[in-house]
Design a protein around this nucleic acid. Sequence first.
DNA 1: ATTAGGG
DNA 2: CCCTAAT
Length: 608
Amino acid sequence: MEKVVEVEGSDEGRFEVTGLESNFVLSSPKHVADPVVYKLVRVDGNGQLVPATDDELMEVEGLLENEKHETHIIADTGQALGCTSNEVSSSGMPQLESSEGLSLSENTEAGIEKLSTQLEEAVPSSAQCLSDDHVTQPGSVGEYLKPLDGPIQGGSSTSAGCISSKPDFSKLKGELCLDNLSIKELHEVFKATFGRDTTVKDKLWLKRRIAMGLTNSCDVSTTTFVIKDNKLVKRDNEDSSNNMNLATGKEFPTVAVEYNADLLNSLSSQIDEHQTISVVRSENNVVENNFANEDLAADQRAAKRVRKPTKRYIEELSEAESKEYSGRLIASPKNIGIRPFPSISHARPARNLSLEGRTVITRLDSLGGFGIQVPCVYRVRRSRPRKNVTALLKFHPSGMGMTATFIKRGLDVHGSQMGNESMNKVLEAKSTPEQTPQQFVAESNNEKSSTDLGQNMELKYVDTSGDTSDDNVVTVPTAKGGIRRKHHRAWTLSEVMKLVEGVSKYGAGRWSEIKRLAFASYSYRTSVDLKDKWRNLLKASFAQTPTDKGANSRKHPSMPIPAPILLRVRELAEMQAQAPLPNLSAASKLPACGGGGGSVNETRPGYL
DNA sequence: ATTAGGG
DNA sequence: CCCTAAT
């Protein structure tokens, strides 16, 4: 906005333009050092990275997912090196208000901006800058981003929202301004910001907290990026995961690293302080950085979480029970999707925020007279629920005073997701000039990579749903009183094609094979899904082919399945009916058993 | 662990 | 899609 303090970076121009960003910069210098989300991993035999343990993964993943949709981040060592770890101050280090703190922070910011910029540009072209992208198209960063989600807006919008609500402070007060305030004043500000009083007398704490509340920023999402040799690279999740899966047969959807401002610090110098970094290089040359950060000021965390919009669903245990469950947040899908800016900053002491599908429950616990917000985050399975939810429901943590222990499965949040998804679709369809390119690029890459394995698919069939992130979940009440989630991701054309192809290659019934080979890129879609889909396809093909082939074309609602595909499905079906399975045995490796036999592949020649 | 079927 | 029974 106003003048951006002298930044050494070369990119200031860009963010100078962005009002939001500037504010962000001014107001959050010190907080750049946000808690980093670390993902613990270990390297297993073949160099693959694997989360240390399920629990850990789960825990971390929650965070990751959460963050991923932040504005961005990134880290290259570049200027970041200049930063000092501001974070330390929170633990009792001397304050770094004066010039040093400021300038450093500025630099840091600059670095971040720069880095993030790089990041975004890394893949596709260069053009888009943060400003435009973020403001106009939140989703541009990756498929992971969901434009509008719940209550809280992501990235820049968030800060925008907050700022608007607190113009007085944000505008001119960055750290500097806060510095000049008395404790009392700080308390005022605090109250205004968070809607509650605080008894904390620590000036620094207050400042930090406030600043955070105001800016709500400082982190970045990175899900789609990885660090390779200290460089950030955008990585096609699908693709890479695909490859990895192929190679190892393991199913690990995302191997992304989460970075946030802290990374900068850590990179710069404090790597060992509270964090440990392990850089591993896998065979693929993909390096994963993991950080373990312990002991970060709780307040900071809380603040951070508060701002995070969530898109994913939340796990909940006995949904009905928790009173803290605020209806309005979770309410109905509709509300969520379109809700403007429910300024969460005014939320009550105890509240739930659904962010990015994850629900953050903050509780105001009275701890020695201090009002402390205890953020409780529970990670939600990205993939399908491990078991049946009902089992979870039964589990009622007893004794523990922490509401935190409840796992919430949010129902509604999904609704928001759907909204988002549709949003995305719209975007895709409309495709705003600027942002579309990126998305498309990414998508097409995915497609390409996936198809490479098999045959070349015509681009016309390419659709953008190949993403890993979108899952749209709908909860359905079950007879027993439990609730279960139903994931629904529409089958894309390309998926269908792959399926068909897979069936033609390996034969219907060998779902796991098909899954592994042809569907490696789609982490969801279990073999069962494939089977089901195939069943449906068969039904469809038989049902409508005879009568009216055009039936599909005019149906807009559910994606019509191109006639040719249905045709093929039918062919395959008929064919396989005759020659069921080659029967695997020693020689089974080669499907094309025997010379003459009508191998399943016969049908294929025509296409693919 | 996969598959087939029913819901 | 989810769940379950059967291999």
